[in-house]
């Protein structure tokens, strides 16, 4: 009997120790898992914030791309439309200039063009070229310029004159076409302003 009770006592002791070991193991596992959960909450929150912030950055980038390209596209369309309108204005103006009446003040214009040309070339020893429509007006004005002569060759232009020094070294294009070409950027600006573009 005595040995049975000693055995039972030992078994109880072992069971008790095992139970307390298991319980303490469970406790530490619980606290470890709690700790690990707490830690992972912080990491998770950091990662969550990182993902959100990256997502925001990416969204901002895409938004900028979309807005930027559509802004550019609409601006380009506006530029093309304005340019088409400017071209139409030029075409109409050129048509009107080419059909303009050659009488009255036109001879004064030719004279001022010849004055300007001879001044720039520094000589009146020149050959003058013009179109077939202006030949008579130019011929009648040339008498005022000693040494100047009208070429029998005509040039294709809206009006005005092209002068060449007699030695052939210098040429000055003072046709209406050349004047329009020289002033085109300024005229374009004026036309565009009429359409409400530019300053």
């Amino acid at each position: 009997m005595a040995s049975d009770s000693a055995l039972e006592g030992t078994i109880d002791k072992i069971l008790g120790q095992t139970e307390s070991n298991i319980l303490s193991g469970l406790d530490s596992a619980l606290s470890e898992s709690k700790q690990s959960l707490d830690d992972s909450v912080i990491t998770l929150e950091q990662e969550y914030d990182q993902i959100i912030s990256n997502g925001k950055k990416e969204a901002d980038k895409i938004e900028k791309q979309i807005i930027g390209s559509s802004d550019i596209e609409s601006r380009n369309k506006k530029l093309t439309t304005v340019e088409e309108s400017i071209d139409k204005v030029f075409t109409k103006a050129i048509e009107e200039i080419s059909n303009a009446d050659r009488s009255g003040d036109y001879s004064n214009l030719i004279k001022s063009l010849l004055d300007e040309s001879t001044k720039i070339l520094g000589t009146t020893e020149i050959t003058v070229f013009t179109n077939s429509k202006d030949k008579d007006v130019v011929q009648s004005t040339l008498s005022q310029y000693p040494g100047a002569e009208l070429s029998s060759e005509t040039i294709d232009c809206l009006g005005g004159v092209k002068v060449k020094s007699k030695d052939g070294a210098m040429t000055f294009d003072n046709t209406i076409d050349a004047k329009i070409e020289r002033l085109k950027p300024l005229i374009r600006k004026d036309i565009a302003t009429q359409f409400g573009v530019g300053n």
Binding site: I120, L121, G168, A169, T171, F172, D173, A178, R182, L183
Partner: peptide, 12 residues
């Protein structure tokens, strides 16, 4: 920008 200038020289 002006409309002045524009003399063309052919002696190179």
């Amino acid at each position: 920008m002006s409309a002045e200038g524009g003399v063309q020289y052919s002696k190179i």
